[in-house]
Design a protein around this nucleic acid. Structure first.
Length: 339
DNA sequence: AATCAGGTCAACCGCAGCTAG
DNA sequence: CCTAGCTGCGGTTGACCTGAT
């Protein structure tokens, strides 16, 4: 037995809104508010529309201070960075961009940004492949007796664009508060080693963290997501529909994330390769697991995006990859061509 | 000028979570 | 505790637009 429909579908108009409908809805909400009940609202004002449709129309189009189109470079960066960090949580991303709606951002991502980024990624990959091929050919010409890895596989692997998940400098209006990040990690079940702990946490492979990273991977992700959800709902649960309001007070999800990344970047600065691997594995929990519950197409795009973050190093091209990594990794941040 | 393909975006759908009764 | 109703969210659809052939 399914749920009862939210409205009588036979008596509800669908499709584009007329200017008259817009005017009715806007006038009513500006005068009376939504009354906390979208389902009842269309009947009150004599609109043959579903309550959900009214809500959507108001939030995405009629609400004051809505911006349409004309995304700036800075907004692009924020969207990309957040998408890579948290995936397709459009409402959360929209909350960081005043005047933008989740629907707008989602459309913008799906129609333009994704292609823009993938285009850049492919260009970089192609450039690297050419460089790698040249190197390989040179090596083979020097030693004709030793077959190179290229000969062993007709498939040339996707080469990673190594990039930190988020550029802290670009997210200039959040994530500056160390304490907030600490409290986030604590809420997530982590533990700072200097919180009455004798020493820095050391993992099995010897890498050291300033906090305890021993919580289970699934728990970390689940907790992170519920934290994000609760932060978002705190912002939106006031009864006034303000999905695009920036998180108003206290440490934001984004702040926590960025502090997290700042922390990781600091780690990266002095880590050796082993430590880097460990950090990436650790930090990868949030992002990789973030692809759950998406469609296959979404998963594909997520994988595409994830390749900006996580180098996948096919084993049979190690030589070439090493040279690539030497030249491309950790020379400094690489953000979608904004270097 | 007609047709087609691809892009864009507003709107719909269905699910999950929350909450009041 | 359970259930029904509501809200919010993310994925998808389809109408419209635009540029290429």
């Amino acid at each position: 037995m399914g749920r009862a429909p939210c409205c009588d579908k036979a008596n509800v108009k669908k499709g584009p809104w007329s200017p008259e409908e817009d005017a009715k809805l806007k006038a009513y909400i500006e005068q009376h508010g939504t009354g906390g009940n979208w389902i009842a609202l269309p009947q009150k004002i004599g609109l043959k529309r579903c309550g959900k449709s009214c809500r959507l129309r108001w939030l995405n189009y009629l609400r004051p201070n809505i911006k349409h189109g004309g995304f700036s470079e800075e907004e692009d960066n924020i969207i990309c960075n957040l998408y890579i960090s948290i995936g397709s949580r459009w409402s959360i991303i929209a909350a960081q961009l005043p005047g933008r709606t989740d629907n707008d951002i989602k459309n913008y991502w799906n129609t333009r940004l994704k292609k823009k980024l993938l285009g850049k990624q492919r260009k970089e990959q192609q450039a690297r492949r050419v460089g790698c091929l040249k190197q390989e050919m040179k090596r083979e010409s020097e030693n004709l007796m030793v077959p190179g890895p290229m000969n062993q596989s007709p498939y040339w692997p996707e080469l990673p664009v190594v990039a930190p998940p988020v550029n802290p400098q670009q997210l200039d209006y959040h994530f500056k508060d160390d304490e907030s990040f600490r409290s986030l990690l604590i809420k997530l079940g982590g533990r700072f080693s200097d919180d009455h702990q004798p020493s820095i946490t050391t993992t099995s492979s010897g890498v050291q963290y300033p906090f305890d990273v021993s919580f289970p991977q699934d728990q970390l992700y689940d907790n992170t997501m519920s934290m994000l959800a609760s932060q978002a709902s705190m912002t939106n649960s006031t009864g006034s529909q303000l999905p695009n309001t920036q998180f108003s007070a206290g440490p934001t999800m984004s702040q926590s994330l960025e502090n997290f990344q700042v922390e990781l970047n600091d780690q990266l600065a002095y880590s050796n390769q082993q430590q880097l691997d460990e950090l990436e594995r650790f930090y990868g929990l949030n992002v990789v697991n973030g692809s759950t519950g998406t469609t296959s197409e979404e998963s594909t795009s997520w994988e595409d995006m994830s390749s900006f973050v996580y180098p996948t190093i096919p084993s049979n091209h190690e030589t070439c990859q090493q040279s690539i990594l030497q030249h491309s990794s950790f020379e400094g941040p690489r953000y979608f061509g904004h270097q």
